[in-house]
Write a protein that binds this DNA or RNA. Structure first.
Lengths: 155, 155
DNA sequence: TGGTATAACATGGTATTTTATGGGATTCAA
DNA sequence: TTGAATCCCATAAAATACCATGTTATACCA
């Protein structure tokens, strides 16, 4: 039986001169409880950093391994992009991680980072960009309401 | 075997200066018995807070995870909107949770919160708004008699 | 059935802990 | 030995746990 873990909420944290950010306490709790690590990489679709548990990437690796044929070009591209970019991040005794220059630049994060929960994953945004993105998504989702039907199945 | 749990009734509770509210005793009993947690988020359609059990969101996460492919845009939007807004709330020994500023503002709740049972979910309203909403719903229902078509199958 | 004792609940207040974050010291590698 | 990464300490604010009280609901008993 798999334990419940969900990255949730939207948290604004300071990034100091050294590039250090507090990983939200809730997120830390998950990492500790499952005794795993956080992995971050540049989002393939948005100007933000994406993070998940190392377990999730392992699961993804297995899935890719099994689904597409072993030598497909798509698989090659994807694995290169994701795993080539991903990096483990462990937090210190005060709960901070140190994001790399590459990641910060991709998300255009200067002095404030926004952690946005996505369930099994989370994202880290620049505050202004996140605000824009959120309104965009809200509009998008309200337009095609049907996509919310998945929720109905929750037993 | 699924246990029975239903959020029911309409309960008026005080919200103190810190944003603390007693979670109705019946609701607490459910959380304890299923040894899970409450999750709250802003309703997408009404000026109220919506709450459910963490299990429900976990199931949703799994479904989203499995239903669409890893890079689907729909999945991205949905997870951002839902999980980015949701937050766990655990109650202290006296049975109180601490609602966030964001949630209180969305529902325009000041010093009194109304808990309204919805079965698998519940809502938290500002008293005046809830009164209006209830009469509105009642009127609506009287006008076009609703048809609750229930699919009969083995539970 | 009526009355009383008991338990549960909501709620105000206070104490304790956790969290985010700044700054400095130490270590390590180029 | 300089720059960067890691660790440790300090602090303010926020979240959480704990205690106390009046009130209501429930259980119990004559």
């Amino acid at each position: 039986m798999r334990k419940i873990f969900l990255f949730m909420d939207t948290i604004f944290n300071k990034v100091d001169a050294k590039g250090r950010v507090s990983l939200p306490a809730d997120y830390r709790a998950i990492v500790k409880e499952l005794s795993t690590e956080i992995v971050c990489y540049r989002s393939l679709t948005s100007p933000c950093i994406e993070g998940c548990l190392e377990d999730s990437l392992d699961k993804l690796a297995t899935e890719i391994e099994n689904s597409t044929d072993f030598f497909s070009e798509t698989q090659d591209n994807l694995t290169n992009l994701i795993f080539g970019d991903a990096k483990r991040f462990s937090f210190d005794s005060t709960g901070r991680i140190m994001l790399t220059e590459k990641l910060l630049k991709h998300a255009n994060i200067k002095d404030t980072a926004v952690f946005v929960g996505k369930g099994r994953k989370f994202q880290i945004w620049n505050p202004e960009n996140w605000e824009k993105e959120e309104t965009r998504i809200r509009a998008e989702v309200m337009k095609n309401r049907p996509s919310l039907k998945i929720q109905k199945d929750a037993e």
